[in-house]
Nucleic acid binder design. Structure first.
Lengths: 120, 120
DNA sequence: TTGACATATGCTTATATGGGAATATAATAA
DNA sequence: TTATTATATTCCCATATAAGCATATGTCAA
């Protein structure tokens, strides 16, 4: 089985750095035409269009026709699953001092158990 | 060019749901043997070993030999880049009311400019 | 040494990928 | 109409993938 399609979910969609860049440009909240993104990012137009296609399929961006240009805007709330998933780990790098104490305590408790239970 | 390797960075590594599951089990902070993960997740042992291999290459987990088992533990701080990237978007789904106001204001400003500047 | 257990690695296969280049579609202007 | 601008789509291709299964490696026990 190959890797899940990039259009499967947000996690796969944002794995591509260039797609994160596109999202970054749209992060201001204003809609951008494809050409504006091309200029802003300095990548070839077909590349931008393709990446936008992936982002659109996942729902991260939405399009609207405006004359001969297509305006893309960010649907940032689609990124929430990523935030929700990673947020619980925040404590591991904030409150550095607390973390060290916590770690030490955990290790002492572990040492006692692991030897006897084997954890398997 | 194919998709970037799963071992390229954290974003690619966590795109796989099963790898996020493994991380979830290790989230408690305690080290787990491979067999423990196999039991906890109900997936075949080779699959677990392979996914752990990816996570290890990226630095998300680290191993230590303990008898005939290998204990894997989470290096949660490696997830920080993901958190750092997604955190700025948090405001788009929290403070719902503020967001609606903000959106309305933005749209009014946009409407005035987009028509004249064309954004390209 | 032999055997049981724990984990890793090798193999095969179908498949989606991202890039580049060219070209198609669409909308406006002349 | 024809030309020009804006964007999308198609084709080609090398490649890494995840899964399943078998097997190798490593470690302890008898």
């Amino acid at each position: 089985m190959p890797r899940a399609a990039t259009t499967t979910d947000v996690f796969n969609a944002i794995a591509e750095p260039r797609r994160r860049e596109i999202i970054g440009v749209l992060a201001g909240g204003r809609a951008h035409a494809v050409g504006a993104l091309v200029k802003a990012l300095g990548m070839p137009q077909p590349a931008v269009s393709k990446h936008l296609g992936v982002l659109r399929q996942v729902g991260i961006v939405s399009v609207s026709k405006h004359g001969r240009q297509r305006l893309y805007r960010l649907n940032a709330q689609e990124l929430k699953p990523v935030h929700d998933w990673v947020k619980p780990y925040e404590r591991f790098w904030t409150h550095q001092l607390d973390r060290i104490k916590e770690r030490a305590e955990r290790k002492m408790a572990e040492r006692a158990r692991d030897q006897k239970e084997g954890l398997s």
